[in-house]
Design a protein around this nucleic acid. Sequence first.
RNA 1: GGUCCGAUAGCUCAGUCGGUAGAGCAAAUGGCUUUUAACCAUUGGGUCGAAGGUUCGAGUCCUUCUCGGAUCACCA
Length: 624
Amino acid sequence: MSIPEFNEIVEPNDQTEARREHLERLRDLIGNVYPNKYRREVLQDGQVIIPDQKATITNVARFARPIKDKHISELPEGEKPSDEHRDAANAELNQYRIRIAGRLAVPPRVMGKAAFVHLSDGIERLQIYVRKQDAKAVNNDTGETIDEEGTAWELFGLLDHGDFIGVEGFLFVTKTGELSVHVETIQFLSKAMFPMPDKMHGISDPELQRRFRYADLIASSLQVERDDLTTREVFERRAKLISGMRRFLDDNGFIEVETPMLTPKATGAAAKPFKTHHNALGIDLYARIAPELYLKRLTVGGFEKVYELNRNFRNEGLSQKHNPEFTMLEFYAAYMDVNGMMDFAEAMIKESVQKATGGSLQVNYDGRAIDFSKFERLTMKKAIVRHWREENRQLGNEFFEIQWLDSPVQVARLRRFLAYMSVAEVEYVQSANPTRYIIEDAKKIIDEKAMEARIKEAKNIWFSVSDEIQENTSEVFESFEKNVVELFEIVAEEKLIQPIFIIDYPKSISPLSKASPENPNVAERFELFINGMECANGFSELNDPQEQYERLIDQMKEREGGDEEAMVLDEDYIRALAYGMPPAAGIGIGIDRLVMLLTNKHSIRDVILFPHMRPERKEGETVE
RNA sequence: GGUCCGAUAGCUCAGUCGGUAGAGCAAAUGGCUUUUAACCAUUGGGUCGAAGGUUCGAGUCCUUCUCGGAUCACCA
C-alpha cells in the first residue's frame, strides 16, 4: 500500500492552483495564513453586549435585524427604502461595533474600489461591505493592523469563494435595504483549496453527497434556491427528534444508560453479527445486534425505567432501509404491559415529532400526507383481512368470504390462492417470491379472459383445501402461525401507511415476549408500521426464567435446523431473570426510519451522516 | 446475485442521422466606490469512465469490464 502524495489528494487543476497561488500571495502579505483564533463580539459604547462564543453570524443577524425592521419594513422585490428611513435605521445601527467571522458564502462581488460579499456561519448569512479606502488588513504574525494603504484591498482580492475571514466594523443598511457590516479591519482565517459546490444545484450526485458529506453540508449554506430540506436541515431535524425523545424519557423518570457494544454473544434480536477479536482477553467478540438483554438485566438490578439510544450493528445486506449500523432507541418500564407501552410510545413519538417539525404532526412523505396525530391498533389477522379484501375488490369478484382467519383452513385457502395467482407462474418476474401477489403486474401480462379463467381455477382450489387440512394438531397449528405472518407480510405490510400498531403476534416468533393472558398462543407484542416500514417493536417482557430458558432452547434448535438468525442461549441472562425481574414492557424504535419519514428521504443513507460505502478506488487499483 | 438507468471541462448539464467537443457557473486578465444568481469585455480549460471491436471516420454503434443509482430477492 503506497502513501498518496498531497497532490494526489488535493489534485492540481486550474481551480486548486489558482487558490494555492492566492494562499502563497496571502502568506507574503499577512504572514500566518492559518491563525489560531478570532475573537467575535458585539459592542455598544465600548461595552461587550454579545460575547465571543455567542457572537455567531446567526445571533448577530438575529440581534440586528429587528433594529433595522423598526425603521424599514419588508419591501416588495426591487423596491428600495427611502433615504429618510434608511438614515434613521443607520443612526441606530452605526452605534454597534461588531466582530464576526465566517465563510465566504458567495464569490466576492467587486466593483472597482468597493465590494460586497456574504459571510455564513452555516445557518445564516450576513453581508459585508468592503471599501478600499476604509479597510485595513490584520497581520497574522503580529496581530497588528497594517497601516499601509491598499493592503486590505489586496488581501480582499486574494479571497476565494469558501475562505474564512473575520471582520470588524459597524452595522448599516444598504440602499437596497439589506443589513450589512461596513468593514474596517479584515483578518484572513483559513483557505478553501477546493472550489465550492454549485450554488444553484449543490452536490447532486447522491454518491458524492454521502462520500463528501462535508461538502454537501457546505452546499446547504451556499445554495441559493431550494424546494426541500437542505442536508443540514435534515440532520438538524434528526437532532431535534432525538433530543425530544431524550427529554420526554428523562421527564418521565427514565435513566439513560450505556451497555456494551462489544459482546461475547450476539443476542436480543434475530440477525447476523459482526465478529471481532480481543487480543488481551483472547476471545472473540460480536458487535451488538441489540442491547435488549443488558437493559433487562438493569430492570432486574432495580432501574425501573431505563433507556439506551445508540447504535446497533447487523452484518446483513444494504438497502434503502438498511445500513450496517443504525440507531435504535430501546427502553424498558417496570410494571407496564404492552398496552401501557403503546400508549406511552405514542405520546412520546407525537411529542418528539412535533419538536422535530416545529409543531406539526403532519408530514409530507413522497407526496403523501402522514398523520402522526392518530395511531391505530389492529390485530395482525384483521390487517390481513382488511387489505386482502381491498385486493379482492380490485379483482371484481366477491366469492371469498374470509371471516377473521381464525382457522387453519381459512389461512391455508388464502395462502394457496395467492400462490396460484402469483405472477411468477407465468414467468414474468423470475426472481419473484412465488407467493407474491401483485394484481397490477398480473394484469400487464395476462388479458382479461385469461384472468377470469385463472380466478375460476383459483376458486376450485379454494374450496378443495378444506379436505386436506387436519385441524387441531400442533404441527398444523405451528405452520398456521407462520402462514399468518407470511400472509401479513405479503398482503398487508406495505399498505400500512398511517401510523398503526399491529398487535397479536404469534408466540413462536417472539421468544422474548410474554404470552397474552387471554390466548396462550399469542404474544403480547406489537410492531409499529408507518409508510409500510417497521418503525418500532415492543412487548410485555418475558420474565419467567424457566420459560425463557425453554424458549431460547427452542431457538437453538431452529439454529441447528439451519436458521442462522435464530437466537442463542445467554446463560447469564437466564441467571439474571432468576434473581427476579418485575413485570415490564419494552420497545425498540428505529430512529433512522423515523427520521426518513420526517425529512421525506427515501434512503436511510440520506439520514445517516457518514453511511458505509465501498472504499474509493483509484484508476488501476484492483479489487481484492 | 438478477433486471433497468447513468458516467462528457473544477461544478451542473447539452451533444440531432456516425462527420471539426458545446453552454451556464467557476477560474485567469482588465473595467466599474451601495451590489446581491452583480454586470461588461477578453482568455485559458477535455484521454468524452476503462479496454477492445465495427467503420474512411466513434462522445454517438457493438462486446467486455469498473464505478454509481434505481429496483427485485434476504434483513429492522
